[in-house]
């Protein structure tokens, strides 16, 4: 429908699709809130339905409260000990963000080196793959032995988890540059640094961001795995403790906060992408209308 009307409006001789692109961009920015609501109400509804189902199951006494606590009970546990939960959430958040940040720096840098040096790529790839396939839960105890009970082993596990998707996506992004673009750059007398900054890196950003979104959720998992193996604080510790005491409300609270942490980090990355890549194909109004 929309496509049809634009064709009718177009003058037969006018070569361009949109006579006022500036106005269109402004318009799409103003409709941002509306589109946010349009795109979020469905998942929000599904989430609400799950909570209602959870509440209904517990309210109808279908399962024993010590197996599945009611949503209200879980919330009460959190409200009764806000300080306790805030502290442990903060610890896990800190480990996650630190691990994620280090993974971004190390991941992007190694991707760049690998793209520019085939020798490094060939030598590093097996190692990279090895680091990815080895179960983190299995090597986490080793990190505790090596690095102690503190923050470091958790951050290391988080880095290990988050690093791989970042490297792979950045390598793919940097390699998928149109070779003509690089030739063009050469005829402009651009050095490798200029070509990288102005052409290659920005072109790789859409790939990089999809890697970052995966990595953000992996970082949370990494931090919690680290805590499971040996810790005296953090959400992983909270869950282990609650499990040991058969304290399912605290266990559920810990799980929910942990999931929320992953979701928040994911949304932050997505928001960042929204502002960094306003030009990307996924953001075009045509694409938005077809997805509705």
């Amino acid at each position: 429908m929309a496509a049809q009307s634009t064709i009718e409006q177009r003058e037969p001789t006018a070569p361009a699709r949109t006579p006022a692109p500036a106005a269109r961009r402004r318009g799409s920015a103003g409709g941002g809130l509306l589109r946010f609501v349009q795109s979020t109400w469905r998942p929000a509804a599904v989430l609400a339905a799950i909570f209602v189902a959870w509440w209904a199951v517990t309210a109808a006494d279908l399962v024993k409260p010590y197996l599945v606590p009611a949503p209200g009970t879980t919330l009460d546990v959190v409200l009764a000990q806000t300080g306790y939960f805030a502290h442990h959430t903060w610890i896990t958040t800190y480990e996650t963000i630190l691990g994620f940040a280090i993974a971004i720096v190390v991941g992007v840098l190694s991707a760049v080196v690998m793209v520019y040096s085939p020798t490094v790529e060939k030598s590093l790839y097996p190692l990279l793959l090895f680091a990815q396939v080895i179960p983190k839960i299995a090597i986490a105890p080793l990190f505790i032995v090596w690095l102690g009970f503190g923050l470091t082993p958790k951050v290391v596990v988080a880095v290990l988890m988050a690093f791989f998707p970042i490297v792979i996506s950045t390598v793919t992004g940097l390699k998928s540059i149109d070779p003509e673009m690089l030739q063009l750059s050469a005829t402009m007398g651009a050095g490798p640094g200029q070509t990288f900054r102005k052409i290659r890196f920005p072109a790789a950003l859409p790939h990089l961001f999809s890697g970052l979104k995966v990595a953000a959720t992996m970082a949370v998992t990494g931090a919690v795995v680290g805590e499971f193996v040996g810790a005296n604080e953090g959400l992983g510790y909270v869950i282990l403790q609650a499990n040991g005491n058969l304290d399912t409300p605290t266990l559920f609270a810990g799980l929910l906060i942990m999931s929320l942490l992953g979701v928040v980090l994911f949304v932050v990355v997505e928001l960042l992408e929204y502002f960094v890549l306003p030009w990307h194909a996924s953001r075009r109004t045509d694409a938005a209308t077809t997805s509705l």
């Binding site: 361009a16 699709r17 949109t18 692109p21 500036a22 030009w279």
Partner: peptide, 13 residues
């Protein structure tokens, strides 16, 4: 069309 992005331009443009 100075401020148009490539995806907003026809092939000729």
């Amino acid at each position: 069309f100075e401020d148009a992005y490539p995806n907003e331009l026809s092939g000729g443009m």
